[in-house]
Measured scan of single mutants.
Amino acid sequence: KELVLVLYDYQEKSPRELTVKKGDILTLLNSTNKDWWKIEVNGRQGFVPAAYLKKL
């Protein structure tokens, strides 16, 4: 499993997105899109802007 660090808080703006908090370490599911990465948070899957995340 690949992990990502959340660099900035992000509030979901659609049902396909997820809310994340700065400092969270989460599972990366897909990073093929350069702008939006798919991650998992508490069993939910969704997208967060790639600029808000850093691969560990």
Rank of each mutant, 00 (worst) to 15 (best):
F47H: 06
P15W: 09
L53N: 00
F47S: 03
K13L: 11
N30I: 08
R44Y: 08
V48E: 00
L5G: 02
A51L: 14
K38G: 05
N30L: 09
L18N: 03
V6T: 03
E2F: 12
L29R: 04
S31I: 06
E40F: 06
D9K: 03
T19F: 06
S31N: 08
V20F: 04
T27F: 13
Y8H: 15
L56M: 12
L7I: 09
A51C: 12
D24Y: 06
L56C: 09
V41T: 11
V4L: 04
E17M: 06
R16E: 12
E40C: 11
G23L: 02
V4D: 00
Q45A: 15
Y52W: 07
D9H: 06
P15A: 10
D9M: 03
L7N: 02
N30R: 07
K1D: 11
P15K: 08
Y8G: 07
R44Q: 11
D24T: 10
K22I: 04
D24R: 04
L53M: 06
D35N: 13
L56V: 11
W37F: 05
W36A: 04
L29V: 15
L18A: 10
G43W: 04
T32Y: 11
K55C: 07
S31C: 10
K54R: 13
I39H: 00
W37Q: 01
Y10L: 01
K13R: 13
G23H: 05
V20D: 00
P49C: 03
K21Q: 11
P49R: 05
K1G: 15
K34S: 12
K54G: 05
Q45T: 14
S31Q: 10
K1V: 15
V48A: 05
K1C: 10
P15S: 12
T32V: 11
D35F: 15
L29A: 04
G23P: 01
D24V: 05
E2H: 13
S31H: 13
D24C: 08
L7P: 00
A50H: 03
E17D: 06
K13T: 15
L7M: 11
S14F: 08
D9V: 02
V20K: 00
K55Q: 08
Y10T: 01
G43K: 06
D9L: 02
K34Q: 11
K38S: 09
G23C: 06
A50Y: 02
L28P: 00
E12I: 11
Y52D: 02
L3V: 09
L7C: 06
T19D: 04
D24I: 04
L18K: 03
Y52A: 11
Y8E: 13
G46D: 01
S31T: 10
R44A: 09
I39Q: 00
P15Q: 10
T19E: 04
E12M: 12
V48Q: 00
K38Q: 13
T27S: 09
I39E: 00
V48W: 01
K54Q: 11
K21T: 11
V4R: 01
T27D: 06
N30P: 03
I25E: 03
F47P: 00
L5D: 01
T27N: 11
Y10P: 01
Y10G: 01
K13G: 08
G46A: 06
V48G: 01
L5R: 08
V41E: 11
F47M: 09
P49V: 02
G43M: 06
D35I: 14
N42G: 14
E40A: 09
G43P: 02
N33I: 06
L5M: 13
E17A: 08
G46N: 02
S14N: 13
N30K: 07
T19S: 14
W37C: 02
V6E: 00
Y8C: 10
Q45F: 09
K13N: 11
G43Q: 07
D9P: 05
P49S: 03
K34Y: 09
R16H: 13
K55V: 11
L3M: 12
L56N: 03
T27H: 15
T19H: 07
E12H: 14
K22D: 02
A50G: 05
L26D: 01
Y52T: 07
L29I: 15
K1H: 15
K38I: 14
G23V: 00
V6I: 04
Y10F: 08
K38A: 10
D35R: 14
L28G: 01
V6F: 01
Y10S: 01
V48P: 00
N42I: 07
N42A: 10
L18H: 04
L26A: 15
P15R: 08
T27I: 14
L3N: 06
K55M: 14
T19G: 06
V48N: 00
Q45K: 09
D35S: 13
L26I: 13
A51P: 09
Q11I: 10
K1P: 15
V6N: 00
K1M: 14
E17K: 08
K22T: 07
K54S: 11
D35L: 14
L26G: 14
Y52V: 12
